[in-house]
Design a protein around this nucleic acid. Structure first.
Length: 322
DNA sequence: CGTCTTTGACCTGCGC
DNA sequence: GCGCAGGTCAAAGACG
């Protein structure tokens, strides 16, 4: 096996044709057409589509330090995939096909980003209309015409109970857009600035490591998070976010992780969610912490997941409040 | 006492 | 219809 795949996680990189090198920084979340091609449920021709991607560098509307921040974060990230829900599920259980040419050509010294955007909900959820555009699950679209957004639902608890009731014939459960990435960390549940309540844990087939299910503790926020370890490389944690936060990062954070996250996530251009994180940052007291260091220091000394989470709060996870 | 984790039971979707 | 696996619920207990 090539060294190019030394960071493969459950076949992520081999499975998915999206390989991002920070040097080229093609980033599929921002701009471009990611609509799945007819007859191609899981593959995307990067050579065709990359030209329409807004480059990652272009996305950075901030300073060079922002860019460095991102690059530093990607040092901790091993894969990048854009896929739909079912394919994301499949990559855990199916042998990956041959890597695409773009993957084979990847420089082993380059850093591949590990972003998986897994969407099965509506274009609204995907930030359509100039916002963050995600892939859509064609099967979901074909089976449902209604649009439901958990984050906007004031009757979340009620809907949860209702969800137990039998759905109308042909009605398919809608899922929030998903965003998955992998990190190399000894810690399963990585601090990302939000507060999570664990609501379940399940054994995963073909894996000795259980999968944990977390839900955002904020009321009316239905964002969920799944955390599991790669059975191929136990040092790698696979985190999957589902949904969008409809609130600010809580101020009652342990340490200053939130400040770091907000500060850096603002470097993500998010046309659909023009959340002003700098403003939020001002409201968070700076708490002395060994993790509050310069970027270079962080990269050198911090646990992997801290460098990662500075940057890996996906832009569509933040929703502008009315 | 409030919050969070644990964990077995239950629900749902899907393939056969 | 059945079985399997993923996902969720909710009661009980732990913890600060």
């Amino acid at each position: 096996m090539s060294d190019n795949h030394e960071n493969d996680i459950d076949g992520y990189s081999s499975y998915n044709p999206f390989y991002y090198e920070t040097s080229t920084t093609a980033f599929p979340f921002f701009g471009g057409d990611y609509t799945q091609q007819q007859g191609s449920s899981s593959s995307y021709d990067l050579s065709n589509s990359s030209s329409s991607f807004m480059s990652f560098t272009e996305c950075l509307q901030g300073s060079a330090s922002d860019y460095n921040t991102l690059s530093g974060a990607f040092d901790h990230i091993s894969e990048a995939i854009i896929n739909d829900t079912d394919n994301f599920k499949d990559i855990h259980h199916q042998p990956p096909p041959d890597p695409p040419p773009t993957a084979a050509a990847a420089n082993e010294n380059s850093t591949r980003t590990a972003i998986s955007c897994v969407s099965s909900s509506s274009s609204e959820a995907a930030g359509g209309g100039g916002g963050v555009e995600l892939l859509e699950d064609q099967s979901s679209k074909s089976n449902s015409t209604t649009t439901t957004k958990g984050c906007e639902n004031d009757q979340d608890d009620k809907s949860k109970k209702l969800s137990k009731l039998p759905r109308k014939k042909g009605e398919k459960k809608q899922r929030e857009p998903r965003f998955a990435f992998t990190t190399k960390s000894e810690i399963d549940h990585l601090e990302d600035g939000y507060r999570w309540r664990k609501y379940g844990q399940k054994a995963v087939k073909n894996s000795p490591f259980p999968r944990s299910y977390y839900r955002c503790t904020s009321q009316k926020c239905s964002v969920k998070k799944r955390v599991e370890r790669s059975f191929q490389d136990p040092s790698i944690v696979i985190t999957t976010y589902e949904g969008q936060h409809n609130h600010h990062c809580p101020a009652t954070l342990r340490g200053n992780a939130a400040a770091m996250i907000m500060s850096s996530s603002s470097s993500f251009p998010s046309p659909g969610f023009s959340h002003n994180h700098h403003q939020d940052l001002l409201n968070i007291p700076q708490i002395p912490s060994p993790y509050y260091q310069t970027l270079n220091q962080q990269q050198q000394q911090l646990p992997d997941h801290y460098g990662l989470f500075q940057n890996m709060i996906p832009p569509f996870m933040h929703k502008q409040e009315p």
